[in-house]
Simulated scan of single mutants.
Amino acid sequence: MASRARKTSRSIRRGRALLVAPLLAATIGGGIAMSQPASAAGRPDAHRFLSAVVPCESGGNPRVVNEIGAGGLFQFLPSTWRGVGGQGLPQNASVAEQWKRAHILYAQQGTSPWYASKSCWGPKL
């Protein structure tokens, strides 16, 4: 019985994360429109892809920092964050700013910055 409760709880958390991330981005980021370069052919839709990345990278927590110093929803390293125009640290930025910088990084590099979390987004996209 405890196993079923854990499984149900895990499913609820995953479902919430999958629902909250796109909703939050749509509400806050609203009209972030990024055109993809020609080399982006065959890439998943940016917003759909990034929505799948969030639960795996940060569990939906925009303030989380991992053991190597990557932080925020998309687990930006500080150098990568600065490379896409971010100021300060990603975990201290607004959710809208984190989404904006993630869209920029995706437009530049596609899925490669999030390859370590491919088990979360790969089969779905």
Rank of each mutant, 00 (worst) to 15 (best):
R48K: 12
A40F: 08
E67G: 11
G86A: 13
L50H: 08
V84P: 11
G60Y: 04
G69I: 14
E67D: 13
R48Q: 12
G42E: 01
S39P: 00
S58G: 10
Q87A: 15
R48T: 13
I68Q: 14
A41G: 11
G83F: 01
P55H: 08
F76E: 02
V84E: 10
Q87R: 15
P55L: 12
T80L: 03
F74M: 08
Q87I: 13
A52Y: 03
R48G: 09
R48A: 13
G85S: 09
S79T: 13
G59T: 07
L77G: 03
R82W: 09
A70N: 14
N66Q: 09
G59I: 09
T80W: 06
G72T: 07
V84L: 13
F74V: 05
P55F: 08
R48W: 07
R48H: 12
E57Y: 06
V65H: 05
I68V: 15
G72S: 11
P37L: 13
N66F: 08
V84W: 13
A38H: 13
A41P: 00
V53M: 01
R43S: 02
A70C: 13
L77A: 10
I68N: 10
F76A: 04
V65M: 03
F76Q: 01
N61A: 10
P55T: 08
F49P: 01
P62R: 02
P44A: 14
L73G: 09
L50S: 07
A41L: 08
F49L: 15
C56N: 11
E67C: 02
F49R: 04
P62G: 03
N61L: 04
R82E: 11
S58H: 05
S79R: 11
L73I: 07
G69W: 10
R48Y: 06
A46S: 07
V65I: 15
P62M: 06
R48D: 05
S58R: 04
L89N: 06
G83Y: 03
R63G: 10
R48M: 01
R43W: 15
A38I: 12
A41D: 10
G42K: 03
G71R: 03
A70Y: 11
S39Y: 09
P90Q: 12
C56V: 13
V53E: 01
R43F: 01
Q87Y: 05
G88Q: 14
L77N: 00
F76Y: 07
N61Q: 04
A46G: 02
R63A: 14
P62W: 04
R48E: 06
F74K: 02
Q87M: 12
G42P: 01
G69A: 12
D45V: 00
P44H: 07
E57T: 06
S79E: 08
G59H: 07
G72M: 07
D45G: 00
V65A: 01
P44C: 09
H47A: 09
G88L: 12
T80P: 05
Q75E: 04
G42I: 00
P37T: 12
V65P: 00
Q36C: 10
P78I: 10
V53Y: 00
T80R: 03
